[in-house]
Amino acid sequence: MAVIALWLEFDGGAYVGWQYQTNGQSIQQRVEEALGDLCGGPVTVYSSGRTDAGVHARGMVVHFVVDHILPLAAYLHGVNQRLPADIAVRRVRKVADRFHARFSAIGKWYRYSIYLAPVRSPLCQRFGWHFTKPLDLELMRLAARDFIGEHDFAAFRGSGCSAKTTIRRIDSVELVEDGDFVHLDVRGSGFLRHMVRMMVGTLVQIGAGKRALSDVRRLLSQGVVDETRLNAPAKGLCLQQVYYPDYLLEPEESS
Score class of each variant (00 low, 15 high):
34 A>I: 09
82 R>K: 08
218 R>C: 10
31 V>H: 04
43 V>K: 09
217 R>C: 08
38 L>G: 05
68 H>V: 15
201 G>S: 07
178 D>P: 14
240 Q>P: 00
93 R>E: 10
95 V>T: 14
23 N>W: 03
2 A>T: 15
30 R>P: 03
168 R>K: 15
142 L>W: 07
11 D>W: 05
230 L>W: 15
43 V>N: 01
186 V>T: 01
196 V>Y: 01
178 D>L: 15
181 F>E: 00
210 K>F: 05
21 Q>E: 14
25 Q>A: 13
252 E>R: 13
113 S>W: 03
15 Y>K: 10
1 M>Y: 11
44 T>A: 08
206 I>V: 15
166 T>P: 10
18 W>I: 05
168 R>G: 06
176 V>P: 12
151 H>Q: 06
82 R>E: 01
50 R>H: 03
141 R>V: 09
194 H>V: 01
94 K>V: 09
42 P>N: 00
102 R>S: 06
53 A>H: 09
27 I>W: 02
138 E>L: 12
55 V>A: 05
127 F>L: 13
193 R>H: 15
111 R>N: 10
12 G>N: 09
141 R>N: 07
4 I>F: 02
28 Q>E: 15
69 I>H: 02
62 V>S: 10
95 V>E: 07
170 I>R: 01
34 A>F: 07
88 A>Y: 00
190 G>P: 13
128 G>L: 01
28 Q>H: 08
29 Q>P: 00
184 L>G: 00
125 Q>N: 10
55 V>H: 10
98 R>D: 15
174 E>M: 06
165 T>W: 04
132 T>I: 10
132 T>L: 12
182 V>G: 00
136 D>F: 05
9 E>D: 08
174 E>K: 14
1 M>L: 07
96 A>N: 12
10 F>D: 08
255 S>L: 08
107 G>W: 10
114 I>S: 02
244 Y>F: 09
2 A>E: 08
136 D>N: 05
174 E>H: 09
99 F>Q: 12
237 L>D: 04
1 M>E: 06
140 M>A: 03
7 W>V: 13
207 G>D: 12
119 V>S: 10
141 R>P: 12
118 P>G: 03
201 G>V: 15
245 P>Q: 05
43 V>L: 04
87 I>F: 04
68 H>M: 08
200 V>E: 09
155 A>E: 04
48 S>E: 04
195 M>T: 04
102 R>M: 15
254 S>N: 12
242 V>N: 05
65 V>W: 07
236 G>Y: 06
37 D>K: 11
215 D>S: 13
77 H>C: 01
107 G>C: 13
195 M>S: 08
122 P>I: 02
32 E>I: 04
72 L>K: 12
185 D>Y: 01
108 K>S: 08
172 S>D: 02
38 L>W: 14
106 I>K: 05
145 R>V: 07
122 P>A: 02
173 V>Y: 00
208 A>V: 02
130 H>I: 07
198 M>C: 04
230 L>Y: 05
245 P>G: 01
9 E>H: 01
161 C>L: 05
114 I>F: 05
213 L>P: 15
127 F>N: 13
81 Q>K: 11
91 R>P: 02
91 R>M: 09
177 E>A: 14
92 V>M: 04
187 R>Y: 01
51 T>L: 06
40 G>W: 08
40 G>N: 08
251 P>L: 02
12 G>A: 07
21 Q>T: 07
6 L>F: 03
62 V>T: 11
183 H>V: 02
167 I>W: 00
156 F>P: 03
144 A>W: 09
13 G>Y: 02
